[in-house]
């Protein structure tokens, strides 16, 4: 059942090139997730939970806004789980019914994240008891965020995405600056520069693929 239109050729080579561009763009939007949906949940998670952490455990041990001590950590855990589930579903939806190299790459990359976080959680949990309170936040926050920065940079090498490399490098740099600045300030840096960086990455990625 081939209609005449299907077999039609193009009078103008430019029409053919435009059709190719349109079809490639359309396919790309189908098989890769919307960058906003992949980055914004993490950006909001960092903005909110590190923001709460800064307000509760501010610089020099000050409490800028009174709230129970468990609130920032609980918010962080809950939001991380929610963002993880959400982005997992969005990512799986876009790569569904496509088998082969890219799904193996995605799987291995996903396992790398889990392995990295599990390792650090075990190590940090083991040494946490013997650490002074103010340094605990730096250890957990700084360590985990260092891992995030490195994994984004490594991901950029897999998918050859320059923007993802810039994001990973940015996160790595602001994290180190925050750690050197000290407890309290670190949380502020992660909330504003880290969370902001993730929000910008989602926006830039979305603008590029429109």
């Amino acid at each position: 059942m081939t209609s005449k239109d299907d077999e039609s050729i193009f009078g103008d080579p430019g029409d053919a090139l435009r059709l190719i561009e349109r079809e490639r763009g359309n396919t790309m939007r189908h098989v890769t997730p919307d960058p906003r949906l992949m980055y914004w949940p993490w950006g909001l998670t960092w903005l909110i939970s590190f923001g709460l952490s800064f307000l509760r455990f501010g610089p020099d041990g000050r409490t800028l806004v009174a709230m129970p001590a468990w609130v920032p950590m609980t918010a962080l855990t809950a939001l991380l789980i929610a963002a993880g589930i959400f982005t997992g579903i969005v990512g799986a939806r876009s790569s569904r019914d496509i088998a082969g190299r890219s799904s193996r790459q995605g799987l291995m990359y996903g396992i790398s994240w889990s392995a990295g976080f599990t390792s650090l959680a075990v190590i940090f949990g083991r040494v946490s008891d013997s650490m002074p309170e103010p340094l605990l936040g730096l250890l957990w926050g700084g360590g985990m965020v260092a891992l995030v920065g490195v994994l984004y940079m490594a991901g950029s090498a897999i998918w050859v995405e320059r923007d993802m490399f810039v994001l990973g490098a940015w996160i790595s740099v602001v994290n180190v600056i925050g750690v050197l600045w000290g407890p309290g300030w670190h949380a502020l840096v992660l909330a504003v520069a880290g969370g902001g960086g993730l929000l910008v990455a989602g926006l830039v990625g979305w603008l590029r693929r429109r």
Binding site: R24, T27, V31, I98, A99, G100, R101, S102
Partner: peptide, 8 residues
């Protein structure tokens, strides 16, 4: 547009 090693 798909990876060379992929099947859809």
């Amino acid at each position: 547009q798909l990876d060379g090693g992929d099947r859809i």
